[in-house]
Design a protein around this nucleic acid. Structure first.
Length: 826
RNA sequence: GCCGGGGUGGCGGAAUUGGUAGACGCGAAGGACUUAAAAUCCUUUGGCCCCAAACGGGCCGUGCGGGUUCAAGUCCCGCCCUCGGCACCA
């Protein structure tokens, strides 16, 4: 019989589903293990290679854990709300709900061909009222804690599509869909106060097992910086400007101050004779688009206001400018400019001929490190010794930093302050396909949250969702008009929907009880199963989903709903699979469809090939070259089992190595080495080397066994063990082979991972090299753990060694046990 | 510009963390089986060289240039290329 992967895979998929092999008793599990992949975005009706690459290997790890006795919960679901479905609808007229439902039913069938342990009774679908009712509930919990608020803020606006865009839809300042430069527009928007958790989000990173680079990205994104907020009085004015600086030690070097053009004080302080030019400039900046405004290569522009600020440290009068390089959204929206010690200020001061004063000199002023007298060629931004700094002159930067901060604090002109780069999370979308925000606006009561008993606020099906600049829901009279829950008078619903990242920031809580209709999640189960033990997904979510989910969990903990504050204890990123160097995407037309490989080689071969390609976290450029290697391997395995059909499934599991003949001993040793290798590699997601080891073993085993010296008992033991360690990689095939050998149930229900015999692993002899002055001159085979003296005398007897030692004096001989001997000669 | 990952045969990639570079697989070449092809199996396969030949020996070789060491893909210094993230965050 040939390896008929098509019927084998169908057969076992059906078996698993019917027998509910992967059903976990969530309440009574003893060794819980929650293994999670980032759920699917069903914007297209097909899985692509990236999904397989994410899900397949993760399932292999999960199966490995299951065989090791864990109660593994491995769910799958759909992140079904979102723009792609809506855009598709706008283009084709197919309602997003219809296209999403259709896509999901196709995808679900495709998922089954992967042979993962998903229990489809535990699916979640974020676009279903039974799910988003609880997304709305989550919103209300945050709202109650004062963590959701509405305010007027600048958002990304695409003038062509007449719609607001999510940040992630703005690529290099352009609208992702039509390529039009995005502009900023002030609109009243909903925010989550994620900045209130900045320090907690930083602190939590210390306690979780995540890739360092991901933690670093989050740290950078949060961007904590310690500094001082300093008040500058304004000459002849009751106003003050407040600036944030991380370099109070350079305060004596401040030669001007700058406000962001949007700063509220601009209108107040501008001198009448400067007003028309200032207004003109503010108008000009407002019309700059995102690329122009944020480009670092663009020349900075600015204009004086005619007003002057008083430097609180020395009473000096400095001009106040407005300039586009100061952001209104960070710190106080105003800076003190120290051109000698800040690159941006230096560039600006040089351009506008503003004074530059050196107040820090390098500690050791030697060579190129010397800061020469003016004119400076570049800003000196490092620490050093203060100069031109009043009483502080001569002190080191750090001392000056604290000295000036203390003095400002004493005089009330400043205070130490921590600032963050992180902004609050803008969660409202003027879009149709999302969860409605459960808020009602009442003329007499104002903003009123929808009472929890009235959830869900249903998303109406029959809505004109083509974009026109206002929320599509605003056009649905039926939706908008309601009664105020407080006073009963006519009121209007909030017409915005939530960012899909809200949906995905709590779904891992819902999986355990997806059909529960009395709560968002089953508290008892969540306490038992969370945090997620292993979370696997793309690194592109490092500063979005992975940050949002951490925030929501922390907020829910503070609201008393959870007892833990980190959702994902351990995180792994799969690498990205590219095609001809570019990310696979529909718009590039370079998406590779996995079906052709599933049909041509089978799901087992395909998932195994993806694991064999290279290190899991590196991904790589797609090529199907090599898939035949894995296919051949599985064929060989199949044929080997086929040829020994009828051998007992129950076999001896341990042998005394002394009682075996030479071939058997070799096989037994190789097998135990293999088990050790695969066990260690799987633990660390090193699938490629584990598979290479499986192949090596097969090669060696068939060769040794061909000698005919390997007895039946040992053969049985080898097949039995080999099949178990193969099972996580090729689950369908393993089931079939197990059945061939008389197994009566699923191998995943009956078998246990094989323990290796440390004693059996040790080799009897090793090959070691002889080096003379660093060059390899001979290789010898000696008994393992031979003594240094033995090794030395054996190597000295080698002809080639003799040749090179002839007439030389041995200065040193270094022996590395079981590795090498190295002679140093003269 | 800043931060992080990575450069190893024709290709995907191994290498116990300083100790036999190129495991495993693909591809290629030659051979066996076959009327033929496919499939399968066997042999060879980093480059150059010495020898009549060897399953013998030598030299070079892990992006480039230096260094440390008995020994460097691995450590140090200085560059180049590439991928990812951030990008006027004061």
């Amino acid at each position: 019989m040939k390896y008929d992967f098509t019927s084998i895979e169908k057969k076992w998929q059906k078996f698993w589903e019917e027998k509910k092999v992967y059903r976990v008793d969530l309440n009574n599990a003893k060794e819980k293990l929650y293994c999670l992949v980032m759920f699917l975005y069903p914007s297209a009706d097909k899985l692509h290679i990236g999904h397989w690459y994410n899900f397949g290997p993760t399932d292999t790890w999960a199966r490995f854990k299951r065989l090791n006795g864990f109660d593994v919960f491995e769910p799958m679901g759909y992140d079904a709300f979102g723009l792609p479905a809506e855009n598709y609808a706008i283009k084709t007229g197919v309602h997003p709900q219809d296209s999403t439902d259709r896509n999901i039913s196709v995808i679900r069938e495709q998922l089954k061909t992967m042979g993962a342990m998903y229990d489809f009774d535990y699916e979640v679908d974020t676009s279903k009222p039974e799910y988003y009712k609880w997304t709305q509930w989550v919103f209300l919990q945050l709202y109650k804690k004062g963590l959701a608020y509405r305010t007027n803020a600048p958002v990304n606006w695409c003038p062509k599509d007449q719609t607001v865009l999510a940040n992630e839809q703005v690529v290099d300042g352009l609208c992702e869909r039509c390529g039009t430069p995005v502009i900023r527009k002030a609109m009243t928007q909903w925010f989550f106060k994620i900045t209130a958790y900045a320090d907690k989000l930083l602190e939590g990173l210390e306690r979780i097992d995540w890739p360092e680079r991901t933690k670093l990205m989050q740290r950078n994104w949060i961007g904590r910086s310690e500094g001082v907020e300093i008040q500058f009085k304004i000459q002849n004015s009751q106003f003050k400007i407040s600036v944030f600086t991380t370099r109070p030690d350079t305060l004596f070097g401040a030669t001007y101050a700058v406000l962001a053009p949007e700063h509220p004080l601009v209108q107040e302080i501008t001198k009448p004779e400067f007003k028309s030019r200032v207004d003109e400039y503010v108008e000009f900046v407002a019309h700059e688009n995102e690329i122009e405004r944020t480009s670092t290569t663009k020349e900075k522009t600015g204009i004086p206001t005619g007003a002057f600020a008083i430097n609180p440290i020395n009473g000096e009068k400095i001009p106040i400018w407005i300039a586009d390089y100061v952001l209104s959204t960070y710190g106080t929206g105003a800076v003190m400019a120290v051109p000698a010690h800040d690159e941006r200020d230096f560039e600006f001061a040089t351009k506008y001929k503003l004074p530059i004063r050196i107040v820090v000199q390098p500690k050791v002023a030697t060579g190129s490190n010397t800061v020469a007298a003016e004119p400076l060629l570049a800003a000196y931004v490092d620490d050093g010794v203060a100069v031109n700094s009043g009483n502080f002159t001569g002190q080191e930067s750090e001392k000056v930093w604290n000295g000036i901060a203390d003095e400002l604090q004493k005089t009330g002109a400043g205070r130490r302050k921590v600032n963050y780069r992180l902004r609050d999370w803008l969660l409202s979308r003027q879009r149709y396909w999302g969860a409605p925000i459960p808020i009602i606006h009442c003329e007499s009561c104002g903003e009123v949250p929808v009472p929890e008993k009235d959830l869900p606020v249903l998303l109406p099906y029959d809505v004109e969702f083509r974009p026109s600049g206002e929320s599509p829901l605003a056009r649905s009279e039926k939706f908008v008009n309601t009664a105020c829950p407080k006073c009963g008078k006519p009121a209007k619903r909030d017409v915005d929907t939530m960012d899909t990242f809200v949906d995905s920031s709590w779904y891992f809580l819902r999986y355990l009880s997806p059909h529960l209709d009395s709560a968002a999640f089953d508290k008892k189960l969540v306490e038992k199963w969370l945090p997620v033990d292993k979370y696997v997904g793309g690194a592109e979510h490092a500063t979005m989903h992975l940050l949002y989910a951490r925030f929501v969990v922390k907020a829910l903990q503070d609201a008393g709903w959870l007892s833990f504050d980190e959702p994902f204890q351990s995180l792994v990123h799969q690498g990205t699979i590219t095609n001809q160097g570019a990310k696979m995407s529909k718009s590039r037309g370079n998406v590779v469809n996995p079906d052709q490989f599933v049909n041509g080689y089978g799901g087992d071969t395909f998932r195994m090939f993806l694991m064999f390609m290279g290190p899991y976290d590196e991904g790589g450029d797609w090529s199907d070259r090599g898939i035949t290697g894995v296919f051949r391997f599985l064929n060989k395995v199949y044929e080997l089992f086929e040829s020994s059909k009828g051998a007992a499934v129950q076999s001896k599991t341990e042998f005394k190595i002394e009682s075996l003949n030479e071939s058997e001993r070799k096989v037994y040793r190789r097998l135990n080495q293999l088990i050790k290798k695969v066990t260690e590699d799987l633990e660390q997601f090193r699938f490629n080397t584990a598979i290479a080891a499986l192949m090596e073993f097969m090669n060696d085993y068939t060769q040794i066994a061909a000698g005919g010296e390997v007895g039946r008992e040992v053969q049985n033991y080898v097949l039995q063990s080999f099949n178990i360690i193969l099972a996580p990689f090729a689950p369908h095939l393993a089931e079939e082979l197990n059945e061939m050998r008389g197994g009566e149930t699923s191998i995943f229900a009956s078998a246990k991972w094989v323990k290796y015999d440390l004693y059996a692993i040790e080799e009897e002899s090793v090959t070691l090299v002889v080096q003379i002055n660093g060059k390899v001159r001979a290789r010898l085979t000696v008994p393992v753990n031979s003594s240094d003296e033995e090794v030395k005398s054996i190597s000295l007897a080698e002809p080639n060694v003799k040749k090179y030692l002839d007439g030389k004096e041995i200065l040193k001989a270094i022996v590395v046990r079981n590795r090498l001997i190295s002679f140093v000669v003269k």
